[in-house]
């Protein structure tokens, strides 16, 4: 019995080790004011490569199979496509002016790009490398999200203070929902039932019912000793198990851990200064946050809900994305 148990435990340990191993990868961080990408090894926490890219790199995401990385080079007015193994820029995609953030549609073929200076969302076919649609949205579009079934793409506009619901079949807006001041980021829940939108200056997250686009809940944040005006929710990420949402609170220098079911904040984690965005590693055991002003990345242990390490990167790190390396 005891031997069996021991065998079981070692089997379990082995599995864990294997799982961890199979998830080894890299976190790619775009440095807004250095025109570089810092590539971080997610096991050693070392910056292994620094790649030179276009001007003011911000939004960053991998293709579904991780074979290429897409990068918004905002001031170069282009989306760059990079080979993650060699770090070479393969080609540029047409993107419209000042691309800030984008979302790759679940079909892995259509990139929806927010053109911040032009109040437009540009839809690019990444295979034909052509713009297939441009959609008028509100002022300073930024947050982008795609519903898991691919039916909707959301653009949030910072000065218009709305989430625009784009029907991906017709590339037309079918609804506009108001949120609080300066919406920055949007995400659908994995089951596609809810849309979450953060409002930086409003200091809130609005949760919408996807079915009828009505507001279902509003989340507020409060940290002792920090003035409410400085608590500015920006980027956020949801765990796949549906348990938590990690919310970057900008100049409050904290990440809020929100219970996805109850909408309550369970914990605040201290990170670097002006935290923007974040990415999980492969098994979601670690979370990497970009801290704009302090120019570093904080590593958070997701199980313990504790920051464990700070990694120096370039000037004003902004976006983050993960890819497996084995």
């Amino acid at each position: 019995m005891r031997r069996n148990l021991r065998a079981l435990i070692s089997a379990l340990l082995l599995t864990t080790a294997l799982t961890t191993a199979s998830y080894a990868g890299e976190i790619w961080v775009s440095n807004e004011k250095d025109n570089t990408i810092s590539v971080i090894d997610d096991t050693s926490f070392k910056v292994t490569r620094t790649l030179e890219v276009g001007e003011r790199p911000r939004g960053i995401t991998f293709s579904n199979d991780h074979s290429v990385v897409y990068l918004c080079a905002s001031d170069s007015d282009t989306v760059q496509v990079i080979d993650p193994d060699t770090g070479k820029i393969l080609y540029d995609l047409p993107s419209g002016e000042d691309p800030e953030q984008f979302i790759l549609h679940p079909d892995n073929k259509h990139l929806y790009i927010a053109n911040e200076d032009d109040a437009i969302t540009t839809v690019v076919d990444v295979e034909s490398r052509k713009v297939i649609a441009q959609i008028d949205v509100g002022i300073e579009p930024e947050g982008m999200a795609a519903s898991p079934d691919g039916k909707y793409v959301i653009t949030t506009s910072e000065t218009t203070n709305m989430a625009h619901w784009i029907d991906t079949k017709t590339q037309e807006i079918i609804a506009n929902t108001l949120v609080d001041q300066r919406p920055r980021h949007a995400e659908f829940t994995q089951d596609g039932s809810e849309l979450w939108v953060s409002a930086e200056i409003g200091g809130t997250i609005s949760v919408f019912n996807v079915e009828d686009q009505t507001e279902k809940a509003k989340i507020n944040f409060e940290i002792k000793g920090i003035h409410p005006d400085r608590i500015q929710p920006v980027g956020f990420e949801m765990t796949k198990d549906g348990k938590y949402v990690f919310v970057a609170l900008g100049p409050a220098n904290h990440i809020a851990v929100v219970n996805r079911a109850t909408y309550e904040v369970e914990k605040y984690l201290l990170v670097g200064r002006r935290v923007w965005h974040m990415a999980f590693n492969g098994d979601e055991s670690l979370l990497f946050t970009t801290n704009g002003i302090s120019g570093d990345v904080t590593v958070i242990d997701v199980a313990k809900l504790e920051p464990i390490k700070t990694i120096k990167v370039g000037r004003f790190p902004w976006g983050a994305a993960w890819r497996p390396t084995n």
Binding site: D136, G138, I139, S157, T159, N161, M162, N176
Partner: peptide
């Protein structure tokens, strides 16, 4: 112009 960009959705 800012007001009208927002206004056109409403």
């Amino acid at each position: 112009k800012d007001n009208n960009t927002t206004g056109k959705f409403l």
